[in-house]
Every structure is written in structure tokens, then in C-alpha cells.
Design a protein around this nucleic acid. Structure first.
Lengths: 203, 203
DNA sequence: GTGTTTTCTGTACAGAGTGTCGTATAATGT
DNA sequence: ACATTATACGACACTCTGTACAGAAAACAC
């Protein structure tokens, strides 16, 4: 899009893609932290020195990989956008989110485990929180909804809740469908679970 | 308690405590992953070789540190236990949890950030989930509460929600008190937020 | 206190990984 | 075909790990 990106040498794109793919493969096999730059370049059939021509370090490559993945997610979410009323998403947590996780299940299963990366998790959390705030909470408040809690706290809460549901889904063998999980997510955040908890005498 | 633990040489306890303290200090200063065994032993004024006489690696030392910390938490929680009716905790999320986080705020602020450790996070999550299930959800269901969702999913959800609230609290400067946060947590899981979300037409 | 046991220290070592040089080689865009 | 640019290769200094061993120091038992 920028004028600098106008001449992408084939070799550059090819090498970077090889490295990104190698990282994905190796993360699935051995977890993130234990993968070394040497592993990546070996697996990609690229000289180790070449790695440093494109990325500062392993985290830098991970960010590049994430841009790839979330570009995909954004396309998905735009496609799912139609299900809104007056700009408010009908489905609190779209099945599109769970379908995305399903598509990269092997990757997320590792990254959302003790073999994953805190850097990755915090980026995902920030991304989801922003999404929850702008696409769910803000529109609701604009349409007369009421909230005394800080909106960023509520957004953060929903983001962590989503991560939690992803985590449970992935670690228990993904026996439910993406749309089942979206329904469950709703029950957890605004249905059955809050109802149960409200039964407790509060003072 | 076991017969093996009956003779703890002073030197052993002293060295281990020095190493645990050094780890805590260095985590606060530089984050978990970037701290090396050398850093720890230097800071503790202990020979590096000595480290390996007590701990397999850095994670092993971290677990030892966690046992220390959570022993403290358990004492706190037992003290807070009285606030129950028929075995059900009145306060869904006790202020004791937030007071514990407050006590180790410097530590948690780092560990629940991109400078933290996934191993740590997953252990905390598992601990909180178990606690939520056994001390909150299970008693409620035993007393006539209804839940079609898997109880472990609900417990996991609440655990992640707590971690999320801890995270938000720590990263936004801890301007609220522990009891304020406990109230907010309740509003997020079973009060204001679910009410807001339920206003959305669901089909 | 003395003697025995155990822990700690200091050094050394092999192994692995990192990040950065040049220089030669090969592929690319025009 | 040519100039440009990326890659390969070998080498380098550096850091960290985990283990081994012999001697010094501390704790324990009496």
C-alpha cells in the first residue's frame, strides 16, 4: 500500500514466507519458547544469516506471522458484519471468531498453553478487547445502554473471557462445533452463568 | 510433615530462600524470561553451581516461589472463609483474592504482562479454576442451582475473568481498592455487564 | 569443644545459541 | 545482457547452560 512496498522482490517474499511457515510448523511441534532461530532457518532451508536480513529476532517473526493470520481474521469478520441491527452486532461473540480459532487450531492450542508466549497472548488480548469495546460495548452504550463500570474494564473482561473459552475448547479436544461454542460463550457472559451467580444472596 | 522433611539443614533453607528472593527481585526489575540463572545467583550472592544443587532450572525455582506465595494465599482464604452461608461463599470473588494480588502487586504486574511467563499464568489459571469450581459452583449446584453448561467450562471462565480483572487493575495503576475491585468483578460476571448484554435482541 | 557429615565455593569444560562481519555466489527486475 | 539486490557460507566474539571435581566452610551430633 505504501510506496515503499511497491517493489517486493520475489526472493524476499519467498524467504519471509518460508520463515513464517517454518515458525508455525515448529511451534506446533515443540512450542514457541524452545524453538531457536537455527531451527527455523534449518526447517525453512535458509541460511541463518538470512534470517537477520528480514527479522530482528524470533518475536519479530512472530509478529509478522500474526499480521498474516489476523489479516485473514479481519476478512472473516467483515464478512460476518451483516448480522447487525442498527450497527450493533446481534451475535455477541460471532461464530466467525471460533471458526478462525478452529482453522488455526494446532497453532492456538500450543500458543494458549504453557508452551506458548506471553507476548502473543497479550497482543491477542489487546486486540480482542479493542474489538469488544468498539464493536459491542460502545454501540450498545450509544443506543441507551447503561454502564457504571469503566468501559475498558468491561471490554478487557470480555476479551479474557473469550480467550478462556478458546483455551477450554482447544484443551478439551474441540468436541463442540464453532457455533456451539459461540452459544456457550453467550451463556457464560450473559445467560445461564450470571443467572446462577445472581441467585446467591449478595449481602 | 513427611519424615524426610524433618532435618532441614539451615544452609539449605537459607540458600533456597536467597534464591527465591533474588528471583522475585529480578522479575520485578527485568521480567521473567530475560532473567538468567547467573543473574539470580549473582544477586543472591551464591555460587552458580549451588543453584543446580537445589533446582533443576529457572522454572523449578519459580514453582518453589509460587508454593511460598500460595501458601500465604491459602492462609488468607481460610481466614476469609467465615463469610459463607450453608457452605456457599457469599462474596463471589472475595476481597481476599484482590488483597493478595495487592500484596504481591509488583510481582503480578510483571508476571501478568508480556514480560511474564506462560507457565506461571497457566498454573494460576488452573488453581483459580479449581477454586471457583469447588468453592463456588459445586456448592451452588448442590443447593438446587441449575447449569446446562459443563461445570469445568464455567469454572475456567470465572478463572480467566479473575485474571482479566487482576490484569486490568494492575496495568491501570491500581487506583481502586481491593474491595472496590471485588464489587466490580461481581458486576462484570453477574451484575451490570450481563444485564447490558442481555438487552441485545438475541435473534 | 572435637569430629563427622553435608553443603557451598571456585574453576574448568563442552555444548548450544545469538547477533554481526565480509566476501563470493546466485537470482531478480529492467 | 546488465546492474542490482538477496542469499549463502564461514568465521568471529559473546552469553548462557548444565555438569564435574576438589577443596573450603559451615552445620550437626555427641
Amino acid at each position: 500500500m505504501t510506496e515503499i512496498t511497491r517493489k517486493p522482490d520475489r526472493r524476499i517474499e519467498r524467504t519471509r514466507q518460508l520463515l513464517r511457515d517454518a515458525l508455525m510448523d515448529l511451534i506446533v511441534q515443540r512450542g514457541y519458547e524452545s524453538v531457536t532461530v537455527q531451527d527455523i532457518t534449518d526447517h525453512a532451508n535458509v541460511a541463518r544469516t538470512t534470517f537477520y536480513l528480514h527479522f530482528r529476532d524470533k518475536d519479530d517473526l512472530l509478529f509478522s506471522t500474526m499480521r498474516d493470520i489476523y489479516q485473514d481474521l479481519m476478512v472473516r469478520m467483515s464478512a460476518a458484519r451483516p448480522e447487525t441491527i442498527m450497527g450493533i452486532r446481534i451475535d455477541l461473540h460471532s461464530t466467525a471468531d471460533f471458526e478462525h480459532v478452529q482453522q488455526y487450531a494446532d497453532f492456538y492450542k500450543i500458543m494458549l498453553s504453557e508452551k506458548g508466549s506471553m507476548v502473543f497472548l497479550m497482543r491477542v488480548q489487546a486486540l480482542l478487547a479493542e474489538m469488544c469495546r468498539d464493536q459491542i460495548l460502545a454501540p450498545m452504550l450509544a443506543n441507551g445502554g447503561h454502564l457504571t463500570l469503566p468501559i475498558d474494564l468491561a471490554a478487557s473482561h470480555l476479551a479474557w473471557a473469550m480467550i478462556g473459552t478458546f483455551h477450554w475448547w482447544l484443551q478439551t479436544g474441540m468436541t463442540y462445533s464453532a457455533s456451539d461454542m459461540a452459544k456457550m460463550e453467550l451463556e457464560l457472559c450473559a445467560g445461564e452463568l450470571p443467572n446462577l451467580l445472581q441467585q446467591v444472596p449478595l449481602e
